[in-house]
Amino acid sequence: MSDPAVHESFLVHRGLKYFKLALLIVVAAVVAYIWHRPLGAPNGGTWLGYTLGGLSAAIVLWLTWFGVRKRQYALGATRLKAWLSAHVYLGLALVVLTTLHTGFQVGWNIHTAAYALVLLTVASGIFGIYVYARYPRLMTANRAGLTLNGMMTQIAELDQEIRESSKHLPQEVSEALLRAAQETCIGGGIFRKLSGRDPACPTGKAQRLMETKYAETGIDDPNIGKVIALLVRKSNLLRRARRDVQIQAILRIWLFFHVPLAVGLLGTLCAHVLAVFFYW
């Protein structure tokens, strides 16, 4: 734990070593592209085109290998961080390398599909960097020491207490409270998870019902005040629990793009290389 490298961000890992490496590759590629005067328009079929394409393909394969490497826990977290740092910067370098490889020629074909998948995969990766820089902190703050399971346990306990305190309340109210206890849920479909809210939450409805109802008549039964207070606590917990699910979903959803896009790219890359040599 005393190793300072453990707390160093992968973005600045070892004095931006991989950033500099990626920058070097990009600058070399751009200089070569400007210097190179091919026969006809620049394209992927010149010697520089093949070089850039081969280099890009090798980088794509290596970047994809990260999916395997990150599961090899025995190889150590620090070196994994080096891998991640290189993964990010070489991935970004890929945008320039593949663009030059295309010679700025695009069309409706498998070759441009591969190029587009590179761009989309890198874009989803950039979103991933942003997400990992921002949301873990927000998640810790939102949880304040509780886990999602802990919040749900407290919510269940509050339901129990609300039930005990609301035995003698009017029919209309106790029905709303029963629904709040039996139908309130956290999360749901992917969009519900990502929204972090449930506009039709039975607990919120019950709370609003009681607040409006007793704002007019006034509170004579001490149980009513207690139930409202419990509902407020439950609503707050629900809000935090849903926010927790929202953050977890955001932390995960970019991978639903990044990984399938990357694997799709792998297949498209195979098709791209095959096509080039099949119809040579």
């Binding site: 498998i110 599909a113 999602l148 749900m152 139908e183 309130t184 849920c185 956290i186 999360g187 749901g188 479909g189 992917i190 998870k193 699910v245 977890q248 979903a249 932390l251 995960r252 959803i253 991978l255 639903f256 990984v259 399938p260 896009l261 990357a262 694997v263 799709g264 790219l265 792998l266 297949g267 498209t268 195979c270 098709a271 791209h272 095959l274 096509a275």
Partner: peptide, 29 residues
């Protein structure tokens, strides 16, 4: 009642990845 599982959107990441791969290989190869 709740669904707080973020490891699947319909199918898991692996499923989506296979789907993309098969589409790419099917159309492209």
């Amino acid at each position: 009642r709740s669904n707080v599982d973020t490891s699947r959107i319909g199918i898991g990441i692996r499923g989506w990845a296979w789907l993309m791969f098969l589409i790419a290989v099917g159309i492209g190869i």
